[in-house]
Protein backbone atom coordinates (compact mmCIF):
# COMPACT_ATOMS: atom_id res chain seq x y z
CA UNK A 1 0.00 0.00 0.00
CA UNK A 2 1.83 3.04 -1.26
CA UNK A 3 0.73 6.54 -2.22
CA UNK A 4 3.09 9.07 -3.80
CA UNK A 5 2.31 12.57 -5.04
CA UNK A 6 5.30 13.95 -6.91
CA UNK A 7 6.47 16.30 -9.66
CA UNK A 8 9.03 13.79 -10.99
CA UNK A 9 8.35 11.16 -13.60
CA UNK A 10 8.24 7.48 -12.60
CA UNK A 11 9.38 4.23 -14.18
CA UNK A 12 6.29 2.08 -14.57
CA UNK A 13 8.24 -1.17 -15.04
CA UNK A 14 10.32 -0.54 -11.93
CA UNK A 15 7.22 0.30 -9.89
CA UNK A 16 5.42 -2.89 -10.94
CA UNK A 17 8.50 -5.01 -10.27
CA UNK A 18 8.83 -3.46 -6.81
CA UNK A 19 5.21 -4.33 -6.09
CA UNK A 20 5.86 -8.00 -6.89
CA UNK A 21 9.35 -8.31 -5.40
CA UNK A 22 9.64 -11.28 -3.05
CA UNK A 23 5.92 -12.03 -3.20
CA UNK A 24 4.70 -15.53 -3.99
CA UNK A 25 1.08 -15.00 -2.96
CA UNK A 26 0.22 -12.81 -5.97
CA UNK A 27 -1.56 -14.37 -8.93
CA UNK A 28 -2.29 -11.26 -10.95
CA UNK A 29 -1.46 -7.59 -11.23
CA UNK A 30 -3.63 -4.98 -12.99
CA UNK A 31 -2.30 -1.51 -13.72
CA UNK A 32 -3.67 1.72 -15.14
CA UNK A 33 -1.39 4.39 -16.58
CA UNK A 34 -2.88 7.81 -17.34
CA UNK A 35 -1.01 9.97 -19.86
CA UNK A 36 -1.35 13.48 -21.32
CA UNK A 37 -3.33 13.69 -24.61
CA UNK A 38 -2.57 16.34 -27.21
CA UNK A 39 -6.24 17.04 -27.90
CA UNK A 40 -9.10 18.32 -25.71
CA UNK A 41 -12.28 18.00 -27.75
CA UNK A 42 -11.23 19.76 -30.98
CA UNK A 43 -8.51 21.95 -29.41
CA UNK A 44 -4.86 21.03 -29.57
CA UNK A 45 -3.22 20.91 -26.15
CA UNK A 46 0.47 21.81 -25.99
CA UNK A 47 0.85 21.12 -22.25
CA UNK A 48 -1.08 20.86 -19.03
CA UNK A 49 -0.42 21.91 -15.46
CA UNK A 50 -1.75 19.80 -12.63
CA UNK A 51 -2.46 21.64 -9.41
CA UNK A 52 -3.29 19.85 -6.16
CA UNK A 53 -4.05 20.43 -2.49
CA UNK A 54 -0.95 19.24 -0.62
CA UNK A 55 -1.96 17.33 2.47
CA UNK A 56 -5.53 16.58 1.47
CA UNK A 57 -4.39 14.85 -1.73
CA UNK A 58 -2.22 12.30 0.09
CA UNK A 59 -4.92 11.82 2.71
CA UNK A 60 -7.66 11.13 0.15
CA UNK A 61 -5.49 8.79 -1.91
CA UNK A 62 -4.49 6.81 1.20
CA UNK A 63 -8.13 6.56 2.22
CA UNK A 64 -9.26 5.41 -1.23
CA UNK A 65 -6.48 2.81 -1.25
CA UNK A 66 -7.47 1.59 2.23
CA UNK A 67 -11.08 1.30 1.09
CA UNK A 68 -10.05 -0.85 -1.89
CA UNK A 69 -8.10 -3.12 0.47
CA UNK A 70 -11.17 -3.42 2.66
CA UNK A 71 -13.46 -4.34 -0.24
CA UNK A 72 -11.17 -6.67 -2.21
CA UNK A 73 -8.39 -9.09 -1.19
CA UNK A 74 -5.60 -6.71 -2.26
CA UNK A 75 -2.12 -8.17 -1.77
CA UNK A 76 -0.25 -5.01 -2.80
CA UNK A 77 -1.10 -1.68 -4.41
CA UNK A 78 0.48 1.58 -5.49
CA UNK A 79 -0.88 4.96 -6.52
CA UNK A 80 1.51 7.54 -7.99
CA UNK A 81 0.09 10.87 -9.18
CA UNK A 82 2.18 13.67 -10.62
CA UNK A 83 1.63 17.42 -10.42
CA UNK A 84 3.18 20.39 -12.19
CA UNK A 85 3.61 21.04 -15.92
CA UNK A 86 3.35 18.01 -18.19
CA UNK A 87 3.49 17.64 -21.97
CA UNK A 88 1.59 15.33 -24.34
CA UNK A 89 2.76 11.75 -23.89
CA UNK A 90 3.95 12.36 -20.31
CA UNK A 91 2.81 10.00 -17.60
CA UNK A 92 0.30 11.49 -15.12
CA UNK A 93 -0.87 8.70 -12.88
CA UNK A 94 -0.15 5.05 -12.14
CA UNK A 95 -2.57 2.83 -10.27
CA UNK A 96 -1.62 -0.81 -9.82
CA UNK A 97 -3.24 -3.55 -7.77
CA UNK A 98 -1.97 -7.06 -7.17
CA UNK A 99 -4.08 -9.86 -5.77
CA UNK A 100 -4.13 -13.64 -5.55
CA UNK A 101 -6.77 -13.71 -8.31
CA UNK A 102 -7.37 -11.55 -11.36
CA UNK A 103 -10.99 -10.58 -10.69
CA UNK A 104 -10.16 -8.72 -7.47
CA UNK A 105 -7.18 -7.01 -9.13
CA UNK A 106 -9.27 -5.81 -12.11
CA UNK A 107 -12.13 -4.57 -9.96
CA UNK A 108 -9.99 -2.88 -7.30
CA UNK A 109 -7.89 -1.11 -9.94
CA UNK A 110 -10.97 0.23 -11.73
CA UNK A 111 -12.48 1.29 -8.40
CA UNK A 112 -9.29 3.21 -7.50
CA UNK A 113 -9.11 5.02 -10.83
CA UNK A 114 -12.82 5.91 -10.82
CA UNK A 115 -12.70 7.14 -7.23
CA UNK A 116 -9.51 9.13 -7.46
CA UNK A 117 -10.93 11.02 -10.45
CA UNK A 118 -13.81 12.30 -8.32
CA UNK A 119 -12.26 12.47 -4.81
CA UNK A 120 -8.59 13.38 -5.08
CA UNK A 121 -8.10 17.18 -5.14
CA UNK A 122 -6.29 17.65 -8.45
CA UNK A 123 -7.14 20.17 -11.18
CA UNK A 124 -5.90 20.31 -14.77
CA UNK A 125 -5.11 23.52 -16.62
CA UNK A 126 -4.64 22.88 -20.35
CA UNK A 127 -2.55 25.13 -22.58
CA UNK A 128 -4.47 25.60 -25.85
CA UNK A 129 -4.20 28.15 -28.73
CA UNK A 130 -6.91 30.14 -26.86
CA UNK A 131 -4.80 30.28 -23.69
CA UNK A 132 -5.04 28.35 -20.45
CA UNK A 133 -8.31 26.44 -19.98
CA UNK A 134 -9.29 24.73 -16.72
CA UNK A 135 -10.60 21.26 -17.48
CA UNK A 136 -14.22 20.85 -16.42
CA UNK A 137 -15.34 17.85 -14.42
CA UNK A 138 -17.36 15.35 -16.45
CA UNK A 139 -20.69 13.95 -15.30
CA UNK A 140 -19.53 10.60 -16.71
CA UNK A 141 -16.70 10.56 -14.13
CA UNK A 142 -19.25 10.98 -11.32
CA UNK A 143 -21.34 8.18 -12.81
CA UNK A 144 -18.28 5.93 -13.02
CA UNK A 145 -17.49 6.55 -9.35
CA UNK A 146 -21.11 6.27 -8.23
CA UNK A 147 -21.46 2.71 -9.40
CA UNK A 148 -18.99 1.71 -6.65
CA UNK A 149 -20.84 3.71 -4.04
CA UNK A 150 -22.24 2.00 -0.96
CA UNK A 151 -23.61 5.26 0.41
CA UNK A 152 -24.58 8.70 -0.95
CA UNK A 153 -21.70 10.69 -2.42
CA UNK A 154 -20.10 12.94 0.27
CA UNK A 155 -19.44 15.89 -2.01
Amino acid sequence: MTVRVQAEDFDMGAELSALLAGRHDIGGLVSFLGTVRDLAGDSPVSAMTLEHYPGMTEKMLARIEAEAAERWPVAASVIIHRYGRLEPGDRIVLVAVASSHRQAAFEACQFLVDWLKTRAPFWKLEETPDGGQWVEARASDDDAADRWSREPSPA
Binding site: G34, L50, Y53, M56, K59, I92, F122, V135, A137, D141
Partner: peptide, 26 residues
Amino acid sequence: NQEFARAGDPVSPNDEIALFPPVTGG
Protein backbone atom coordinates in the same frame (compact mmCIF):
# COMPACT_ATOMS: atom_id res chain seq x y z
CA ASN B 1 -9.75 20.63 7.61
CA GLN B 2 -9.07 18.59 4.45
CA GLU B 3 -12.40 16.73 4.55
CA PHE B 4 -15.14 17.26 1.96
CA ALA B 5 -17.94 19.24 3.58
CA ARG B 6 -21.61 19.92 2.85
CA ALA B 7 -23.59 23.17 3.21
CA GLY B 8 -24.75 22.37 6.75
CA ASP B 9 -21.39 21.24 8.12
CA PRO B 10 -19.97 23.46 10.91
CA VAL B 11 -17.01 25.82 10.53
CA SER B 12 -15.04 27.41 13.37
CA PRO B 13 -12.30 30.04 13.76
CA ASN B 14 -9.32 27.65 13.78
CA ASP B 15 -10.39 25.69 10.70
CA GLU B 16 -8.52 25.39 7.43
CA ILE B 17 -11.16 25.77 4.75
CA ALA B 18 -10.47 25.14 1.08
CA LEU B 19 -12.69 26.20 -1.79
CA PHE B 20 -12.25 24.65 -5.21
CA PRO B 21 -14.05 23.54 -8.36
CA PRO B 22 -14.95 19.88 -8.96
CA VAL B 23 -11.73 17.86 -9.16
CA THR B 24 -10.25 16.77 -12.51
CA GLY B 25 -7.26 14.56 -11.70
CA GLY B 26 -6.48 11.09 -12.91
